[in-house]
């Protein structure tokens, strides 16, 4: 390589390279200015709501319909929701489970301050004193493939045989009472152990779940590879849709939006079988409350008070079934009234 032509060309490159970079910079600035100009200044109050991915679609619907504030809604799990509220990063923390003592421990508080019903007896060290609001119910739904014509109804002891590791059924016809079922292997597609739905389901079918003398364990924890966990309910839906011998469970919304592509199973604790639906929830054995936590009871006039009042109003609750959840009033009217009064008198 000759050395002479290089130096001048290097110099030339420098100037032109600069032009290119300058053009790039101008473009970026233009983009910033344009987007900045379009963005009109918001004079409404703002709120941040975060937490459970089960509550998320509901929270988004309410935030979209509520006009008095700009609410940024996000997911990230119940633990994240409660943690963000305790740390003062969120105004509203969504949770599909109850607050636990360990949530307080995480921010340096004593776990004894949190009662079994998910409320606290004193504020956490961060100065936040979470107050629990029940805003709706979720119907846990057991689903099977459309071609499954042998398990239209299952009781808790049959579910126990299918879903736990306590002498589990390998083939469908081994499940007690399913004599017409084919001699084919059961395949389970269901939420993974990190999800609140998983915890709720096994709390229902396994006696003393989570206690030291728990009777059995989820089949996920046995080595037979029957339980295929996934964090995404759409993936579970797809798996059951394409597998004749599959069974699984998730929130009712995923069935509600996809009726016809899978089948629900009637459930009974013992022998009173109930079809999962938004109307039958009072008799259906597997329904769980969904919560929003706030820092204390927001005072009247506080935007959080206005928002919660909206959520619990007829108008706010009327959206709930559309999203695939159950109105609080259908399950627990006294609680709904109590919460409304609490907000009015705050």
């Amino acid at each position: 390589m000759s050395h002479f032509p290089i130096a001048p060309s290097g110099v030339k490159m420098k100037t032109k390279g600069k032009l290119g970079m300058a053009g790039f910079a101008v473009l970026i600035v233009a983009v910033v200015v344009i987007t900045g100009c379009i963005g009109e200044g918001g004079d409404k109050p703002t709120m941040v709501q975060t937490g459970s991915s089960t509550v998320l679609p509901l929270a988004i619907a309410w935030a979209a319909e509520f006009d008095d504030a700009d609410i940024t809604v996000s997911g990230g799990g119940s633990s994240h929701g409660i943690n963000a509220l305790l740390n003062g990063e969120a105004d509203l923390g969504d949770a599909s489970r109850l607050m636990k003592g360990s949530d307080y421990e995480k921010v340096g508080g004593s776990p004894d301050l949190v009662k079994a019903d998910g409320t606290a007896t004193a504020a956490s060290p961060t100065g936040v004193w979470p107050y629990k609001w029940v805003v709706a119910y979720d119907v846990l739904t057991v689903v099977v493939n459309n071609d499954n014509d042998w398990s239209a109804r299952l009781n808790y002891s049959q579910l126990y045989q299918i879903f736990t590791d306590d002498s589990p059924a390998v083939y469908w016809d081994e499940v007690d009472g399913l004599t017409d079922a084919p001699h084919e292997k059961i395949e389970i597609y269901a939420p993974d152990a990190a999800s609140g739905t998983y915890d709720y389901f096994f709390d229902e079918i396994i006696p003393r779940w989570g206690k030291d003398d728990q009777h059995a364990d989820a089949r996920l924890n046995s080595n037979d590879n029957v339980y295929n966990p996934s964090a995404d309910d759409n993936v579970i839906l797809n798996a059951i849709k394409s597998n004749k011998y599959a069974i699984g469970f998730f929130g009712f919304a995923y069935y509600n939006e996809n009726q016809g592509s899978i089948r629900t199973v009637e459930i009974a604790e013992e022998d009173e079988y109930v079809t999962p639906s938004l109307a039958t929830v009072a008799d259906y054995p597997m329904a769980r409350p969904l919560h929003i936590y706030t820092d204390g009871v927001p005072k009247s006039g506080d935007i959080r008070n206005t928002y919660l009042s909206y959520i619990l109003s007829e108008e706010g609750q009327s959206i709930v079934p559309e999203v695939g959840y159950v109105k609080l009033g259908l399950v627990d009217q006294p609680l709904l009234n109590e919460q409304r009064t609490k907000l009015e008198n705050a």
Binding site: G75, G77, N83, A95, S102, D192, A194, G196
Partner: peptide, 14 residues
């Protein structure tokens, strides 16, 4: 990912 975005309470070994 599954644990970080899940609902398991903090403080558990999981």
């Amino acid at each position: 990912a599954s644990v970080a975005t899940g609902d398991i309470p903090p403080g558990t070994a999981a």
